[in-house]
């Protein structure tokens, strides 16, 4: 039984299409996307703006509905997965509720899912430690720095122990130094928890540094142009970004992005 559930991919997309109607005619946000993400992968989606990477993440999260093709999350439809609390979503902004303390913000999904108070407190404490925010639980979001707020929002996505973590440019608004730091922490967190992570970014070094697989996308219509398996070692200090292998992979990502653009 456990073997069965392990053999089901975390996400499988099959000729997935999504078309928005706009005043200038239909916009193909996603076109014929084929993709399989295995459990435990760290997958980055990279591409220029308008390539559909955020849209793809939102389709997985059942925040958008595909207009064609098929998609499954843990072998279920996205809606079933969402109702089952199968994933945690981290948005571009922290989106913490200003009237709740950090603790109560992290407890919000637990409250909604009807988890007992004792268990809530225990889980909140654990996730706060996981993201290095222990001692800040009683603060309000507006009393913390941007980096700490984003860490709190990651803690909130982790609090209900979903196996899948969807992250939509979570560090896009932060400065380089904070970003490096959070990248390192995220990698450790992934190793510690063994979750499947889908990570949207527009930074090549970030994608290469974090991922086991990099999905390169191109716009108009949004589609996958390349999927790169990274063979960087599991242990990745920050200075791995100067190694030859790292630069080779980055080069391949850059080429993939360029090809996508020449299609225009």
């Amino acid at each position: 039984m456990s073997q069965d559930s392990n053999s089901i991919p975390a996400i499988r997309a099959d000729r997935l299409c999504l078309t928005f109607d706009s005043n200038d005619g239909p916009v193909h946000a996603l076109k014929d996307v084929d993709l399989t993400i295995e459990k435990g992968d760290f997958v980055s989606f990279i591409g220029p703006s308008g390539c559909g990477k955020t849209t793809l993440l939102r389709v997985i999260a059942d925040l958008e509905h595909p207009t064609g093709g098929a998609i499954s999350v843990n072998g279920k439809t996205p809606e079933e997965a969402r109702l089952a609390g199968a994933y945690g979503y981290v948005f571009q902004a922290p989106a913490l509720l200003a009237w709740r303390t950090i603790e109560r913000n992290i407890g919000l999904p637990l409250e909604i899912m009807g988890i007992s108070r004792a268990e809530q407190a225990e889980r909140v404490k654990r996730t706060l430690e996981l993201v290095g925010l222990d001692g800040f639980g009683r603060k309000f979001p507006w009393q913390l720095s941007g980096g700490m707020q984003q860490r709190a929002s990651i803690a909130r996505a982790l609090a209900f122990d979903a196996e899948l973590l969807l992250m939509d440019e979570p560090f896009g608004a932060l400065d380089e130094i904070v970003r490096d730091h959070l990248n390192e922490q995220l990698l450790q967190l992934w190793k510690k928890t063994g979750k499947t992570i889908c990570f949207v970014t527009h930074s090549i070094p970030e994608a290469v540094y974090l991922s086991t697989r990099i999905v390169v996308m191109s716009p108009r219509p949004g589609r996958v142009t390349d999927i790169i398996e990274s063979d960087l070692p599991a242990e990745r200090p920050l200075d791995i970004r100067e190694s030859k292998r790292f630069l080779e992979i980055a080069q391949r990502v850059r080429n993939g992005l360029r090809e996508g653009h020449s299609y225009d």
């Binding site: 948005f91 009237w99 909604i112």
Partner: peptide
Amino acid sequence: QAMERDLLRTYASSYFQLLIKLRLP
């Protein structure tokens, strides 16, 4: 904000949970 509504949607929150935990505050 749309992001906050999406957030509660990812938790599969009901209409009343959305109303009490997000919209009324």
